[in-house]
Simulated assay, not measured.
Amino acid sequence: GPADIARAVDFAKSIDASKLQPAILTPFPGTPVYKKLVEEGRMVFTGERDWEQFDMMNATFQPRHMSPWDLEMEFFRAANSFYSRSEGLRQGRLFGAVFGAKRYALGICSRFGRGAVWLAGTFAKGSSYYRLKHTPWKYADTEKCAPALPLAPCPGAKDGAGIWEEKRAIVESAVAFCLIVLSIVSKVRGKQHRTHKVAL
């Protein structure tokens, strides 16, 4: 569940790991786990028509302790926590400014990705993320109102924290996008300035 994921991220931070690559259990077609989940009716996507979803970064099945969409969001939450600004600064003090900047840049990419996925899941009706977000959770009745669930403690209802999480995803995505644009503009202007000096 979410607590297990958070513990794994905290452990990676505690040993000063340089990188973290979260991965979602991916039941590849032809494997025993895929066959088992198909028999239990827990696959959201199937390899025959949704092969591009089987990349270890997308939820493809129905977990027992959180919805498929919550699992997808936990993937990004783990990356965002590990590649946070504070962690970038800490890593910069330990291993140098360049390393810290790279660490934080990965965090910006992660935040942009999370925001983009949330927007697709909310508004892009033809997308796989929209399908994932709006797939009824198979275990909603058994896990209803479990306090460990992120975003939606009671399936079908959103609490204040869940709404805040969704709004924050949009804000983080917008900020990340602006930073990327500013970086590109800065590089272009710098190149133009150097070209102008050479011409003079």
Rank of each mutant, 00 (worst) to 15 (best):
106 L>A: 13
94 L>C: 10
118 W>E: 07
163 I>V: 14
123 F>G: 00
60 T>L: 02
25 L>D: 05
175 V>I: 10
167 K>Y: 12
119 L>Q: 12
87 E>P: 03
119 L>S: 10
52 E>R: 01
12 A>F: 12
70 D>A: 10
35 K>A: 08
25 L>K: 09
198 V>K: 15
45 F>H: 08
35 K>Y: 08
158 K>F: 14
83 Y>N: 07
53 Q>G: 04
59 A>E: 01
145 C>V: 06
198 V>H: 15
117 V>Q: 05
169 A>T: 06
174 A>I: 01
54 F>H: 00
193 H>A: 09
115 G>I: 06
56 M>A: 04
171 V>R: 00
198 V>I: 15
4 D>C: 09
197 K>W: 12
77 R>H: 09
94 L>T: 09
99 F>M: 08
150 P>R: 07
179 L>K: 00
166 E>L: 02
157 A>L: 09
143 E>Q: 11
105 A>F: 10
154 C>N: 13
27 P>G: 00
43 M>D: 05
188 V>M: 01
129 Y>F: 09
74 E>N: 08
135 T>V: 11
1 G>S: 11
169 A>D: 11
26 T>G: 00
96 G>Y: 07
192 Q>K: 10
78 A>W: 02
157 A>D: 04
120 A>P: 04
51 W>R: 13
14 S>M: 09
82 F>S: 00
74 E>S: 12
142 T>F: 15
29 P>C: 02
137 W>R: 15
106 L>F: 14
116 A>G: 05
180 I>P: 00
194 R>E: 06
161 A>N: 14
154 C>W: 11
188 V>T: 01
143 E>A: 07
175 V>N: 02
98 V>A: 06
132 L>P: 03
175 V>S: 04
195 T>A: 13
11 F>R: 15
141 D>N: 15
102 K>W: 15
74 E>I: 10
60 T>I: 05
17 A>Q: 04
